[in-house]
Design a binder for these strands. Structure first.
Length: 678
DNA sequence: AGCACGCCGACT
DNA sequence: GTCGGCGTGCTC
């Protein structure tokens, strides 16, 4: 319908794959990418302008005027809009839901209050100015590091993708720092993505100390809203030289972006597991390729997909083979066979004796167990009944410190039962071990040892993890017990013993990626031992010492594990030999999800058959999700698999179109492209 | 998604 | 007699 007033096309944070039209008398194409406030469904909501038109298909009586176009601040840069478009196509998520959610929350709120957001004073980080007087000489690079740096710095100015593969302690960070320096010297900005857990004040101190005169900002979800916005602005204006952040930082506007680094690129936290299920690492590769800059993916234990990209020639491999501290040697890995030795409370006498000897020498030990709480279940002594969560298909985890049962999936908390629900007997035993129980057992066996626990429960308070790590560095602690929080990033030269209590469960999981994740974690944890001149030792309690994960660990040969895994993946036609997408659905009533899944499966099969043979997409049977019931919802998933990415994407587009028009209001569903847990 | 409207069950 | 459960319609 023709109209004299221009029409602004606005993307909103709704799960609808469309934009909405609003009247806006002074709209122009300059407004594309601007935040706007519009009346929508009876409320004012924040949207993003995606286009301008002279007329609208929408009947004129329905059209309403925008309340505000936020012109006090710059619109989202066109390369960021292009990044959102890419995610829309690749992850099949509505443009508006992606675009609104990448903007700092404060900007959204400020827009809604119809005020320009408070002007932000550019400021230097306090740590930056404080250390600005300190002259710092960068350490000289060893041969491997120098070759890696030469390759990357020589490639600045156009797209290239590098896997920087180096064992723990081989000095990847030093290569990043040199490459960042070379980028800044060209007048460009650098973006560093790190796993959630690595964005510690210590890590920031490290990078700030190295670039004392530069403006370094951060972007992660835990930041105060004001600081997040200030830092976003500094990045967007070009005033910030370096942005360090977690996965969401990949969407930070940076007009002079010249280098992207993804540290620990294999880390699962780069994949968003709710909402828009993007992989920040993969989006980063796309961003580098479109703006034309190098991307460096660093890891001691690269993802199998990343290694496959090297094989296919998409990424170039740079290997660091020497440990940066010359005297440091690789730790010796030994097994304690749980078949032949008892482990009361999870710890064998052999491991306890080794820990005792270590701390008597004045060195430190670390005990790794990938489970929080005291025991993963409570079991009735008479009949074997175990309390489960009412809303999830999972056992309740016993937390002795607070004397509660807790569901690790929905957060539900109850008191331990007085009597068994089945046989009414009143005696319960804790079954299995968690960090709390291992900590308690260590305190009992080694009463004079100074012990700290590092897991999500023990480090909930801000700064408490940092305090424990500081105390460890200062020698005020003898033993650290914890989950994979221990695996990352920290360099404690006095830790010479690492105990792995029991990782067998993950190694034999139904999820084909669990073994890969455990291999990566164990190599990381083992790397904590012997980072200085003192020799390190890793003791692994297991029943399956011959498993490829453990054999690779012992040989310090991740590539060997990868070879074994690849044979299996090829046999089963799993990634990287095929591409996967999951349709995940949940509903309160099981029959609703079941019906939805059957319909979706049939639709997918029909669509798959209408394509040529070469484009074949395999449609699996719908199955229960790993956690079948979660927070009162029954969950199912349907796997789609194809050797050709385009075939899979074509089918997904067609399938989603059908699901969107079909009547399934009571079912919540989402597409997960390149899922990391299946 | 969020919200309103609308029609059927157990209770202040 | 109502409060409230969630089915479905719609949002420019």
């Amino acid at each position: 319908m023709a109209s004299e007033t221009p029409i602004l096309l606005v993307a909103l944070d709704v799960p609808l794959a469309k934009h909405f039209d609003f009247l806006c008398k002074d709209a122009s194409s300059d407004d594309i990418g601007r935040l706007v406030v519009v009346p929508f469904s009876g409320k004012q909501v924040v949207g993003i302008a995606v286009g301008v038109a002279h007329s609208s298909e929408v009947p004129s009586e329905k059209l309403r005027a925008v309340d505000l176009v936020q012109r006090a601040t710059p619109p989202l840069a066109s390369d960021i809009l292009a990044l959102v478009r890419f995610c829309e196509r690749y992850y099949h998520a509505p443009f508006g839901q992606i675009a609104i959610n990448i903007v700092p929350p404060l900007l959204r709120i400020a827009a809604r209050q119809l005020k320009p957001p408070r002007a932000t004073k550019p400021r230097r980080k306090t740590a930056t100015t404080a250390s600005a007087a300190v002259a710092f000489t960068a350490p000289t690079l060893n041969t491997d590091q120098q070759m890696a740096f030469d390759a990357i710095s020589g490639a600045l100015g156009s797209y290239s993708a590098w896997l920087l593969e180096g064992i723990t302690g081989s000095g990847k960070t030093e290569v990043y720092l040199h490459a960042i320096a070379a980028t800044l010297a060209r007048g460009q900005q650098a973006l560093v993505l790190v796993p959630e857990i690595n964005l510690t004040p210590q890590f920031m101190k490290h990078i700030v100390a190295r670039f004392p005169a530069q403006v370094i900002v951060t972007q992660h979800s835990g930041m105060a809203a004001g600081a997040r916005l200030v830092d976003w602005r500094l990045a967007e204006s070009g005033a910030a030289d370096i942005v360090v952040g977690t996965r969401l930082a990949i969407f930070t506007p940076m007009p002079k972006l010249g280098l992207i680094v993804v540290d620990e690129e294999h880390d699962a936290s780069f994949k968003q597991q709710e909402g828009v299920r993007y992989s920040a690492r993969d989006v980063a590769v796309f961003r580098a390729s479109t703006i034309g800059c190098p991307i460096v993916l660093g890891s001691a234990t690269p993802a199998i997909e990343t290694l496959d990209n090297v094989t296919r020639g998409r990424f170039k491999r740079l290997a660091l083979t020497q440990r940066a501290v010359a005297a440091a040697t690789l730790p010796r890995v030994e097994f304690i066979h749980l078949d032949s030795e008892k482990a009361p409370d999870g710890l064998t006498a052999t491991l306890l004796a080794a820990i005792d000897a270590t701390i008597k020498r004045g060195e430190q030990a670390m005990v790794f167990i990938n489970r929080r709480g005291y025991a993963p279940a409570l079991v009735c002594a008479a009949c074997g009944w175990m309390p489960e969560c009412r809303r999830c298909s999972a056992r309740m985890v016993f937390h002795r410190g607070i004397n509660k049962l807790r569901c690790h999936h929905c957060g539900a908390e109850t008191k331990p039962p007085k009597a068994c629900a089945d046989c009414h007997e009143t005696t319960f035993h804790p079954a299995g071990q968690g960090t709390e129980r291992i900590e308690a057992a260590l305190r009992e066996a080694l009463p004079t040892a100074r012990i700290a626990r590092v897991d999500r429960d023990a480090t909930r308070r801000k700064g408490s993890a940092a305090a424990i790590f500081d105390a460890t560095s200062a020698g005020a602690l003898d033993i650290l017990v914890g989950t994979q929080m221990l695996a990352k990033g920290h360099d404690f030269p006095n830790i010479t013993l690492v105990g792995v209590v029991n990782a067998d469960g993950a190694v034999f999981s139904a999820d084909f990626r669990a073994a890969e994740r455990m291999a990566q974690q164990l190599m990381q944890v083992a790397g904590r031992a012997g980072r200085s001149a003192l020799p390190g030792r890793v003791l692994v309690q297991t029943r399956h010492a011959d498993h490829p994960v453990y054999q690779a660990l012992q040989a310090h040969d991740y590539a060997r594990f990868v070879s074994a895994a690849l044979v299996e993946r090829q046999l089963m036609q799993l990634p990287p030999f095929t591409y996967l997408a999951l349709l995940r659905a949940e509903a309160k009533q099981a029959d609703k999800v079941n019906q939805f899944m059957r319909d979706a499966q049939h639709a997918a099969q029909r669509l798959s058959q209408s394509h040529a043979q070469a484009d074949a997409v395999r449609v699996w049977e719908p199955v229960a999700s790993t956690l079948e019931r979660k927070a009162g919802y029954t969950r199912r998933q349907l796997m789609l698999q194809s050797p050709r990415r385009t075939a899979l994407q074509t089918l997904l587009t067609a399938l989603i179109a059908e699901l969107r028009v079909s009547d399934n209001r009571s079912v919540k569903w989402v597409i997960d492209v390149d899922p990391i847990d299946v």
